[in-house]
Simulated scan of single mutants.
Amino acid sequence: MKKSDQQRQNIIDVGRALFAKNGYAGTSTRMINEQAGIAEGLLYYYFPQGKRQLLDTIVHDGIVARRNTAAIQLQDWHADNLADQVMTLFHTFWQSFDNDAGYQSFLITIRERPLLSAEQSQWLISTIEGVQEQITTALRGVDPRPEQRERLATIAQLIMSIFQRTVYDELLIRDSRNPAAMDRADVRREICLVLELMKK
């Protein structure tokens, strides 16, 4: 990585940590400069629109990282171990929040939601919908009956809702980033209940 790229990444890392800790409004460009160890004005070299462009970059990078983590192949799911396969997907989904950058980006995206542009909001929606569509496709591979298509889409939506609620509960309400402390047995029970709908 070139020195200029390292400097830019350093500003992003510092900005992300400060926005997560203090909020966007509570973080000044001076604070970012001091924490990053850069001269005043250098932030504007990398981010000409200043703090707002830095926020946009952090939000975008976080959404892309979560999308890339979630963009796994869900082919060859089988009825005999479907709950295990869904739980494997849940673990993959959780990993996108299981590091400082992912966690901080998530907090910033939630806290600064009123500042997000329509395009940024659409990135979030399309990421969630993309994972949900992958789940629907995988479930249709398990049960290809045409009359089940709509039901399987609903089941995929319910699975995604369980994933999202669990992440929000752990990260926002309980302020816990420790996946070992999470009661995954409860998540699995909910998943199994939802998957029972496929048998009807």
Rank of each mutant, 00 (worst) to 15 (best):
T109D: 08
T29E: 03
A36K: 08
R30C: 04
S121A: 14
V194A: 10
K199L: 15
T92G: 11
E129Q: 12
D84L: 06
V187P: 00
V59D: 00
K199F: 13
E129R: 11
K21Q: 08
G50K: 06
L116H: 10
Y45W: 09
N81Y: 03
Q73R: 06
W94Y: 15
I162D: 07
L55I: 11
M198R: 04
H78L: 11
N10R: 15
D80H: 13
E119D: 09
H60A: 05
A71I: 00
D61N: 13
A181L: 15
D5Q: 15
L89H: 01
D61Q: 10
I108S: 07
K21Y: 00
L18G: 02
I58A: 00
N99Y: 06
G50T: 10
T27Q: 05
S126R: 11
A25I: 14
N22S: 09
G37C: 00
G130M: 12
H91Y: 10
Q134E: 05
S105P: 05
D13R: 15
L197K: 12
L193E: 14
A153R: 14
D13S: 15
I162R: 12
H78E: 09
I63C: 01
V59N: 03
F163Y: 11
F93E: 06
Y103F: 14
S176E: 07
D61F: 00
K51A: 02
V64S: 02
N10P: 12
L139G: 05
